[in-house]
């Protein structure tokens, strides 16, 4: 049975901005489920509704067996959240922040201290625990937020853009922390991100969300598989050679010839490369460069939305929607 069941969830903000438009999906226990989409796509609004901090305009969701509207308090007791913003209090120490949140969940002092110690250790914050949060780096603050979200051993953890604003190195380390936590605590994770590589690295299954709607759902492999194969791009020594190579017959789509470059679409480049080499030797084709393009989530996003994530974020409409949503949520 699914641990989260979302049915026709819709949010229209006052002023008529439709942030989430009738989405439905389900999440299985102990999986990492990703919501991938550009800024302003409706990911954070979805998380806010699932964590019962925002009331849906239509539809509902069952989170851990409880209705988010009728039984919101019970929902809040079993979930943890790591919001996009850095919410830990700067004037308190890391430990004080964690202890304050531990008290919200009716943990005894002994239980709270044990859990805080364990999380500080897992997140490598033990040495910094008595320092004021205002002295923490961005990465440390994000780790602290993660720790706060896990204090009460939640069944489900919502991670809303957990690495937003971090540099690439710190982001990769954060992924390791998230993976370690899943291993150590066995928690179901709902993860939102507009970083393709983040969702690809962490999520077992994902939905691509754009303009408030879910476009497609599946595993990374399934979504990439829907692109029908790999692309092998070969630049030949001459246009004649390229012409000869463009008659390669075993592609899944007709080869594309452009000057001395040929782009072959094959089902699986690992298997087809040997066949292509044999064909090139027979036709006396001497390649200058060979590039294999495995399908990426970026290509998946392009296929289903007609634009890249960066274009979606850079577009005037998306920018306006994101700004409006931030203003409405702020």
């Amino acid at each position: 049975m699914s641990i989260i069941e979302v049915k026709n969830l819709t949010k229209i903000y006052p002023g008529g901005v439709k942030a989430v438009d009738g989405i439905s999906f389900s999440v299985e226990k102990n999986e990492i489920y990703g919501l991938l989409g550009p800024n302003g796509a409706g990911k954070t609004t979805t998380i806010k509704m699932l964590t019962s901090s925002l009331k849906p305009t239509e539809g509902t969701a069952i989170v851990n067996g409880k209705d988010i509207i009728k039984d919101s308090l019970a929902v809040r007791k079993t979930i943890g959240i790591v919001p996009q913003d850095l919410t830990a209090d700067e004037d308190l120490t890391g430990f004080e922040n964690m202890y304050m949140f531990a008290q919200f969940y009716d943990l005894s002092r002994a239980e709270a201290l044990k859990q805080i110690d364990k999380l500080l250790d897992l997140l490598e914050l033990t040495e910094a625990k008595d320092r004021y949060v205002k002295g923490y780096s961005g990465g440390m603050r994000k780790r602290l937020e993660l720790g706060i979200g896990l204090l009460h051993n939640p069944e489900i953890l919502f991670l809303d853009e957990p690495t937003l604003g971090l540099d690439v190195q710190t982001r990769t380390r954060m992924w390791e922390y998230i993976k370690n936590i899943v291993k150590a605590m066995g928690v179901t994770i709902i993860l939102t991100s507009h970083y393709l590589e983040e969702i690809d690295a962490l999520a077992d299954r994902m939905s691509i969300i754009d303009k408030g709607k879910i476009i497609i759902t599946g595993t990374s492999e399934e979504l990439k598989g829907s692109l029908k194969g790999d692309i092998i791009s070969i630049i030949c020594n001459s246009q004649e050679q390229a012409q000869a190579l463009s008659s390669y017959p075993d592609g899944i789509e007709p080869p594309v010839l452009k000057d001395s470059e040929v782009r072959l679409s094959v089902e699986n480049s690992d298997k087809d490369l040997a066949k292509i080499f044999k064909f090139m030797i027979e036709r006396k084709v001497t390649p200058l460069t060979i590039n294999v393009h495995k399908p990426s989530l970026d290509q998946v996003f392009i296929k289903y939305t007609g634009r890249t994530i960066k274009e979606a974020e850079g577009g005037e409409d998306a920018r306006k929607t994101a700004m409006n949503l931030r203003r409405l949520r702020a």
Binding site: S53, P83, Q84
Partner: peptide, 11 residues
């Protein structure tokens, strides 16, 4: 600062 949002998501 977003703190209120987090407090509202706790029980």
């Amino acid at each position: 600062l977003g703190t209120l949002s987090r407090l509202l998501a706790s029980p």
